Simulated assay, not measured.
Amino acid sequence: MITETEMQRILTVLKNPRDRAFISSLYDSGCRIEELITLKNRDISFDQYGSYFQLRERLVTERSGLWAVQLPCPCS
Rank of each mutant, 00 (worst) to 15 (best):
K15M: 02
Q70L: 05
I37W: 09
W67L: 01
M1A: 12
F53Q: 01
R63Q: 14
I2T: 07
M7V: 01
Q8E: 11
D19C: 11
D47S: 06
D28A: 08
I33C: 13
G30Q: 04
F46K: 12
L66A: 08
L36M: 06
L71T: 01
V60A: 11
D47I: 03
E4D: 13
R20I: 10
F53P: 03
G50N: 05
C73S: 15
I10C: 02
Y27I: 00
I37A: 05
F22Q: 06
D19A: 05
V13K: 04
R63A: 14
S64R: 07
T5M: 03
F53M: 05
I44D: 04
E35G: 09
L59Y: 11
S25P: 04
S25I: 00
C73P: 15
Q70H: 06
R42P: 11
P72D: 00
P74V: 02
P72A: 01
E34R: 12
R42E: 15
Y49D: 15
I2C: 08
I37Q: 11
L55F: 10
L66V: 08
R32I: 03
L55Q: 09
Q8V: 05
K40L: 11
S45H: 13
N16G: 00
G65A: 02
L71W: 05
F53S: 01
D47V: 06
S45M: 12
S64T: 12
C73T: 12
M1H: 13
L39T: 04
A21W: 00
F53K: 03
T61V: 10
I10A: 03
T5P: 02
D43P: 14
E6Q: 07
R9I: 00
S76K: 10
T61E: 11
D28F: 02
L59T: 15
K40N: 13
G65E: 05
N16Y: 00
D43I: 07
P17I: 01
G50A: 08
A21E: 04
F22A: 05
F53V: 02
T38Q: 15
F22L: 13
Y27R: 01
S76E: 09
L11D: 00
L39S: 04
E57G: 14
M7H: 06
D19E: 13
T38I: 15
C31P: 10
L55A: 09
G30S: 03
